[in-house]
């Protein structure tokens, strides 16, 4: 009559892992609407292709390694969408395919599937694509034009504002263009207002931590204010640094991936702060424009170290508070 698989708490919180994954998907889908509005239907094909490829690859790997497929496990869908978001709209399909395959086959499957990967698969896939086809990854198109399915010469290829930032210049973009993302950029990562709204939604759903994104953006703001290009007031250089490119998107989606961030609050703040510093270091020294992805990969390797540091620190703080003030 009663199966033995039930254990101690016989009532469970209504929210399940499915809802955690669907939160992330819900937070990503509105960016597709905006990019469809700007670039036409090609963007949706790229997004669907990368998402479904990642999902199929993940299920195939699960079947190969563990002989069972968990059809409700949508974390690969999130990876696929994030990869397609940071690609330019005129990207060829084989570059997206290579990034997705690298993300799932090399970064996720060998480590043990959904909850066990050390590195963020989307970040690794994008880093791989940037390293292999760096020229293709930074060709952008002026928005508000319907792109044909196959890219031919009729489409004018432009350089994004991050290229001018890299050369030390300053893209003369008004605040509205920055917030609406109305400048040549990647598929989904330039619409600052929508990303900010999705961030609020994620924080409300406890899928993202506000102090993590904040501690990532503070060093970025400080450093870009300190060495701003000559003749530009610091505020504008901060806005350009953060919003004229995919840095804000990375800070909201790639940083708040629950699997690869540390688990303690102090560790998360340290992780965010050092990821911000590393991003600025990479931004000034790396030949690519999209350098935040490499910094996130490096910090993913160090996040277990932050956790162990916190575990070592916690008992010391507890004893300090017991001796110091009254504890609770």
């Amino acid at each position: 009559m009663n199966s033995l698989r039930h254990h101690a708490p016989y009532i469970r919180h209504p929210e399940s892992s499915r809802t955690v994954m669907s939160d992330a998907v819900i937070a990503l889908v509105p960016l597709y609407f905006m990019s469809y509005f700007y670039y036409g239907s090609r963007v949706l094909f790229v997004g669907a292709f990368s998402a479904l490829l990642c999902l199929a690859c993940d299920w195939a790997c699960n079947y190969l390694l563990y002989r069972r497929i968990n059809f409700r496990d949508l974390s690969a869908l999130v990876t696929g969408i994030i990869i397609s978001m940071l690609m330019p709209p005129t990207i060829d399909f084989y570059v997206v395919a290579a990034a997705c395959l690298f993300a799932i086959l090399v970064t996720k499957a060998p480590f043990g599937g959904t909850g066990h990967n050390v590195f963020n698969p989307a970040a690794a896939g994008l880093a791989f694509a940037t390293l292999c086809w760096s020229s293709k990854m930074f060709q952008y198109v002026q928005p508000l034009q319907k792109l044909p399915f196959t890219i031919d010469e009729s489409v004018s290829i432009l350089q994004g504002p991050t290229a001018t930032l890299k050369l030390g210049g300053i893209p003369r973009l008004g605040l509205t263009e920055l917030l609406l993302g109305n400048f040549p950029g990647t598929i989904g990562s330039t619409y600052t207002l929508i990303i900010f709204a999705c961030l609020i939604y994620l924080i409300a759903r406890n899928a993202a931590k506000w102090y993590l994104t904040l501690s990532y953006l503070i060093p970025v703001a400080l450093l870009s204010a300190v060495n701003h290009p000559y003749g530009v007031d610091p505020l504008e250089s901060i806005a350009n640094e953060m919003f004229a490119g995919s840095l804000f998107f990375v800070s909201v989606y790639l940083l708040n991936d629950p699997v690869t961030t540390p688990k303690y609050r102090i560790a998360r703040i340290l992780y965010g702060f050092s990821a911000g510093l590393m991003t600025m270091f990479f931004r000034y020294n790396s030949p690519f424009e999209l350098s935040a992805v490499f910094a996130i990969l490096l910090m993913n390797a160090l996040s277990p170290a932050f956790d162990c540091f916190c575990e070592w620190l916690m008992p010391k703080l507890q004893t300090a508070t017991e001796k110091g003030g009254t504890n609770e």
Partner: peptide
């Protein structure tokens, strides 16, 4: 209690809740 169907187990995604 009548628990209708124990949902399929997922891997722990480390959300920290």
């Amino acid at each position: 209690f009548h628990i209708d169907r124990q949902e399929q187990l997922y891997n722990c995604i480390g959300c920290g809740r």
